[in-house]
Design a protein around this nucleic acid. Structure first.
Lengths: 340, 340
DNA sequence: ATGAAAGCGCTAACAG
DNA sequence: CTGTTAGCGCTTTCAT
């Protein structure tokens, strides 16, 4: 294998000093005459010279890579987010590396250090809950960072998210209109920003309509996963609750509920209605299709990347620290109309 | 922000030279007396010194990161693979970065160069089809590389995969036993290794049973995606083919078929049976559950990582260039029994 | 067993 | 405008 060319090789060939070559490959505004610049570019072209990024970032302490850290890469929600980030990043000339923290604090800490130690230009970050250690690490790293779904929490920074409350309120109103009153609300993990906001959206909407959740409704926390939804539904059913609709804080939970319902021979929506939140692609494939709230994750990813890169490149911070996106209700067939 | 410690700081504190510290942190067998070694380790500990990986890999031209490049990160098959890789890699002290080539040659080339330029220790690679340019890049990079689903192709290297043929043959035999004879075989993309092997497995199995595919069967190529399955099924149905079972080369395709069937008011499996391949987690959630072939993809990921790291660390190559994993049939409810 | 010195490939003052 | 000089933080001969 021929060793790759270095800046010195180019300099020698061009008959100039490495510094000059450096100036042109960095589009350094500092003066290089039009001719020498062209000459060098020409040589770089023909030899296909690529500067060594590692050497570069050793000096500048910066690279053209942005890191994305998420808690669960198997959840399509996050892969969709990643896709949005990648699109935007690529168009701006950045690479992206994905770190899966697997909802595990140590792993997350390692990921974050890894990114810092490799001089990433910036980070897009999400987690269910941010630990104090993580917050400290982020603070001390001083790497530009954008949150997806921040939670008025240990760190203040720029954040991109959907309007969870509106979304879930829309669902509540729809369900009320469909005649439902006996809800099992599977709220997702307690203390997690998106889950908390969605819950508030739901409960406030009921209140606003003067309908109380309490007597017939039941609220239960659970992980953001299919298995958790399955278990929660099982428990509720075993308690012989009479429920007309399972309102789930995300689609995964709804999948679990549906699986249990199927196992018990209960039909959706005839025997029981189910709703989700996020509208990940699979939800329309269920039979019946899952009624849920569309969450523009890819768009979120793109915006997060854009904000981050703007920031990295020195743009002034946006006026608001939080960029909010709208959701909308996706009516499919998993909710039954209950005439009153 | 206090600047991170350097090896010099440690050296000064320990009263030794940087070289000695280097020897210690690299567990360099070269002689360092037991005492100085312990002394230095002690200091490294208390100050929490972390060597700068970038500087390190600039010299060694190697890092402790392995790269995974896949064609479609939104397909759960690949996120599961990644998960397997991560588990294994973490336990061996490696970080992993994911690159999504998005089934796009330029992107893939950029990803591969990126990994090479950042001195990754090795790469785990999959794509639907390998271009000649990609092959050249891989060859000239000389980075250790493991294929997932290699395809007797431009490059020879170590490969980890499932036995596609066996898997699809098991499916064929099952369907035959269930009385099916009129198949629509949605074969996935032509020329893609896994798709070709699966198709062969299916066709050969029929032949072995002395049953010919031809008169009533129809074979159609399509992308490995839900939309492609949907379109293919639409076309076939519009041609008024009388089909008893759609045999799909992966689960995603089957999802598309099911979506179309639902739209047309056709019931699975009463009006038409459908099968998949891979058994990604959603498949059991479908109603009826999708009959498919379980593909131990996480295990694949773990093995790929293990093989790769062994190789990186200088282990002799395994005797066979190909590590094969078994699949098994997962019978759910998407296939109807057709008494003859 | 340890240290001094010479870089890895590049950028960043500082001169000219 | 361009070249020279120092390093970035680390590893690696080569001495001692």
């Amino acid at each position: 294998m021929e060793k790759p060319m270095t800046i010195k090789d180019i300099a020698r060939i061009a008959g100039v000093s490495p510094a000059t070559v450096s100036r042109v490959i960095n589009n350094n505004p500092a003066g290089v005459s039009r001719e020498t610049r062209a000459h060098i570019q020409q040589i770089v072209q023909t030899y296909g010279y690529q500067p060594n990024n590692v050497a570069r970032s050793m000096i500048t302490k910066r690279s053209n890579t942005i890191g994305v850290v998420v808690p669960d890469i198997v959840n399509q929600f996050y892969t969709l987010l990643l896709k949005g980030v990648e699109d935007m990043a690529a168009s701006r000339g950045y690479s992206v590396v994905l770190c899966n923290s697997n909802n595990n604090e140590d792993k997350e800490l390692r990921n974050l250090s890894y990114l810092r130690d490799n001089y990433v230009a910036g980070i897009i970050y999400n987690n269910y809950r941010m630990s104090e250690r993580t917050a400290n690490l982020i603070r001390s790293s001083r790497v530009p960072l954008i949150f997806v779904d921040n939670w008025g929490d240990p760190i203040d920074g720029i954040c991109v998210r959907i309007n969870h409350q509106h979304g879930m309120a829309a669902m509540a109103n729809y369900l009320l209109d469909m005649g439902h009153r006996a809800f099992a609300y599977l709220a997702g993990p307690e203390g997690v920003f998106s889950a908390d906001m969605r819950r508030r959206g739901f409960l406030d909407a009921l209140e606003e309509r003067g309908i109380s959740f309490a007597p017939r409704g039941v609220l239960q926390h659970c992980a953001y996963s299919e298995d958790a939804g399955y278990e929660a539904a099982k428990q509720l059913l075993d308690e012989k609750r009479s429920i007309t609709c399972f309102v789930c804080a995300n689609d995964l939970i709804a999948y679990g509920v549906i699986r249990l319902l199927n196992e018990r021979g209960l039909r959706v929506p005839d025997d029981c209605s189910v709703t989700g939140f996020d509208d990940i692609p699979f939800s329309r494939l269920l039979n019946p299709g899952l009624t849920t709230i569309y969450n523009p994750v890819q768009q979120l990813g793109r915006s997060a990347a854009q904000l981050l890169i703007d920031h990295i490149e020195g743009a002034p911070p946006p006026p608001q620290r939080e960029l909010l996106f709208d959701t909308h209700l996706v009516r499919r067939a998993s909710v039954k109309f209950l005439p009153s």
